[in-house]
Design a protein around this nucleic acid. Structure first.
Lengths: 236, 236
DNA sequence: AATCTTTGTAATCGGTGCTTACATTCACAA
DNA sequence: TTGTGAATGTAAGCACCGATTACAAAGATT
């Protein structure tokens, strides 16, 4: 189009040395990166960890990967696509830790498992606030899609849902409406994690040292609130 | 129409036309805007409402105010400062609605007031998700500073805290640790609002039509969980 | 070996926050 | 009324960003 029609193989090189083909013999920077996609995700993960989702720029990721600003667009059609990949990676790590924690939980006690789930969830969220932030915003991570794709691994939200449903069936809850309990439980845990991310904790006099204990206490308080014999109206 | 004719009509400009002083006689666009700060905040509020905090750009706000891109920086030293002003405006509206709702609450029943508070909080948050988002992120709004500055108006977080404390003193709670109840209540409500903002509700099968009812139900569920005679162990 | 596909680079576009130099107007004092 | 300094607008420009396009290099396939 408006290209000035670069000179054909014009023999000598006047001024523009025609992007380095030389060196290479010992410089060892191959034209093709090898695994740029992976490296870009790692760089972006690091950027998220350093300054949150907003601190991720395609150019900076490219810079850290030692590659030109346009290169990432060969692997991700947009910044958001890169963020999606980052969110998936974060979710992978998140799930791994949750499932590991759940392995040590009592198998016969649904409410106990729920407690374990909640505490592990909060621990990870507070240790990796920026990564958690990426996961929890639906903009970058479609939980449903993720659940459908990796069918072998249980989806986390569904796990919580099912655990509470088991407790309900086992008569461990006194509420009449299971769904309300599930959503309330979710809201409580999610809200606590979000409060931590959004910097509410200092306002509530909870320091970094005590926040983990407080998380466990709050989960316990909730469980104590919903636990009880399954009666139609249990207002004491 | 402030200053009538002051510039001579001056016919042709040779080379440098010396930025328009002409027109004005009937165009009525004064050089000074009059209340640019206010208009910028309004424009930014509108942008937040349309596309969330990320959709706010100083230039677009200037554009909507009909002013040059650099003008806003006379009133706000940075984009963040503008966002702060927007957050304060949002908080003002938020507080107004909450306090109005609280006026209709039973004065003698702390738990009833807490319920009223929670429901009003959630209603506003879900009707103004983007504005709520700005308020809740500590990046743009310092709740403590706001509390200190406008001392006559009760701060909202403190209001919730105090209401629960009254319930505690009145023996309406069965928990031993008031602070845990306060934080749990906050986490629940905040988490619910955040879930709505972050688009979790569809995943939980809660449509836009039912979300308000669900909000009230969840608040009630929480209250039922913490209510009871103030005994060391009240497990019925 | 020749060719097609993949994956890199270079240059460029429009958008952004923010700064600087300059223009205009306001408010207040002489 | 008339200066004059402060307040507040414009214009131009910087660096950065996401994204696109034309082109170059390397790998893969036949």
């Amino acid at each position: 189009m408006r290209r000035p029609a670069k000179s054909p193989p014009a023999g000598g090189r006047p001024a523009k040395p025609r992007p380095a083909v030389a060196a290479r013999v010992l410089a060892a920077k191959p034209y093709h990166h090898g695994d740029l996609r992976r490296v870009l995700i790692d760089a972006a993960m690091q950027l998220v960890g350093e300054g949150g989702p907003a601190a991720v720029s395609v150019r900076e990721a490219a810079r850290r990967a030692g590659v030109s600003p346009g290169a990432p667009f060969r692997h991700f059609p947009s910044r958001d696509a890169l963020m999606n990949a980052v969110a998936e990676e974060a979710q992978r790590r998140f799930r791994a830790e949750i499932e590991a924690a759940l392995a040590d939980a009592p198998p016969g006690d649904p409410l106990g498992r729920f407690r374990c789930l909640g505490v592990a969830y909060l621990r990870w969220a507070m240790k990796n606030p920026t990564h958690f932030e990426i996961i929890s915003s639906r903009r970058f991570f479609d939980h449903d899609r993720s659940a459908g794709v990796s069918g072998d691994n249980a989806e986390l939200i569904g796990l919580t849902e099912r655990t509470l449903a088991e407790a309900f069936s086992a008569g461990q809850l006194r509420a009449r409406d299971l769904k309300q309990v599930q959503i309330a439980g979710r809201a409580l845990v999610y809200g606590f994690a979000r409060m931590h991310i959004d910097g509410h904790m200092p306002r509530w006099g909870v320091g970094e040292a005590e926040v983990e204990q407080m998380a466990a206490d709050v989960v316990d308080l909730f469980i104590a609130g919903i636990a009880g014999p399954a009666v139609p109206s249990a207002k004491a």
